[in-house]
Design a protein around this nucleic acid. Sequence first.
DNA 1: GAATAAAGTTAGGCTATCCTAACTTAGGAT
DNA 2: ATCCTAAGTTAGGATAGCCTAACTTTATTC
Lengths: 243, 243
Amino acid sequence: MKTPKRAHLSLADSPENGPLTGPVEDYLKAIYALGRGSVSVATNDIAAKLDLAPASVSGMVKRLADQGLLTYERYRGVTLTSVGRRAALRTLRRHRVIEAYLSGALNYPWDRVHDEAERLEHAASDELVDRMAAAIGEPATDPHGAPIPSREGHMDETEYLSLAELGAGYGARVVRVSDDDPEMLRYLGELEIMPGAEVVVVSKAPYDGPINLRVSGTLLSIGPALASQVMVEPLADMDAPSH
Amino acid sequence: MKTPKRAHLSLADSPENGPLTGPVEDYLKAIYALGRGSVSVATNDIAAKLDLAPASVSGMVKRLADQGLLTYERYRGVTLTSVGRRAALRTLRRHRVIEAYLSGALNYPWDRVHDEAERLEHAASDELVDRMAAAIGEPATDPHGAPIPSREGHMDETEYLSLAELGAGYGARVVRVSDDDPEMLRYLGELEIMPGAEVVVVSKAPYDGPINLRVSGTLLSIGPALASQVMVEPLADMDAPSH
DNA sequence: GAATAAAGTTAGGCTATCCTAACTTAGGAT
DNA sequence: ATCCTAAGTTAGGATAGCCTAACTTTATTC
């Protein structure tokens, strides 16, 4: 009589205690984003991320702890349990699949998929999300380059360098850009700085000055604040400093 | 200085007072469905339709009246205002476009589109709904044959005969079936009784007995309860009684 | 036209989520 | 070690929806 072990447990069967509400999913998603899943997260940071009063967060995390979604120690922050992490990844998967679908199947511009997905992620069934993913060929990332968790709850957590950290003279491929500022996305789009693009850092002005880039043949210059929102993968030397 | 009159006012610009909540949209939709838009509707009927306690409805309709979405006279029922009607039609459009899209673009079986749409209709933006409609060629009806309100708020309100009312010997084309019972839809699907199908009433047993039909060559028999859920358009005599 | 059943309402409560204002704790600087 | 600030908490309150139980109105029936 061995304890039955599930071979594959899908993200879909997380909610033992009924489905989670929209706000709860938002909290878990925010906590996951802030703590990369296992680090302890400050309640004030959650409040800032969700644009709520800190007091509201104190109240909510208590309830989430009671539901077993996270552990909470007063004045010490919050950590997701494995149940909470699964729920967060499930929401993340929905969000990113929806973004990818809107972009890939319905021609949504990449600066508008985020807000739409933000609402749909709480309403779409697992079946719908799976059908969407299948319809666009099970993409590995969303339109901003963020990895889509698998149905089983795995997600590539590779950390990348930001464009701001890349040394002058180095070439890199853009893998991901931050997705929550439509204005910025539109600007990056104009500059053709998007996942897959190759960039070369031509030079960097000191004291947080502008960074000069070459993107698909064009020279342009961006500030370090923007550059830090662009994650890149350095290219094997092909364009490394020449002396 | 003439008062500016909007030539086309789209369903999209109804919510003057911010977007409506999910429950509010559900109430308006239910009231519209029960009152065909202008007739007075009993609060208990709303309660039954939404599966709520009658007392809850009394409370809610008061708030909806305050918001100008309907008029309410105690003990006398409720009537949508034009603002309320527009909001209801907007939700109806969303619901039916989503159903049509799920069926047409994502291969959803017709017995499962309703529940999914029921949740998505509150979360989808107008832009999304319009893109979905465009993607499947601006269909006039949802998968169950229900007419889709136009972006401007017009909807075909033709009333049809039900299959139960059709006399023996008459032929008809199915235009629409009731959409909220998945079980029933699956059964109707098996029988190939779906919008577009041609049926002939071969005979009807008296005292609410079974109705014998010919559908695409096959003979079958259904009860009057089921037949009353199938709306048809009689065909020009081609199969009328022969004597 | 009075009795009653059916329909509908009010009263009082509950939960989830949010807020502001006032208080407490933790942790670094003196 | 003490003090202060930033971080975080509790207290108290609001709103939207929902419920049950008890009451009132309308409409029907004799």
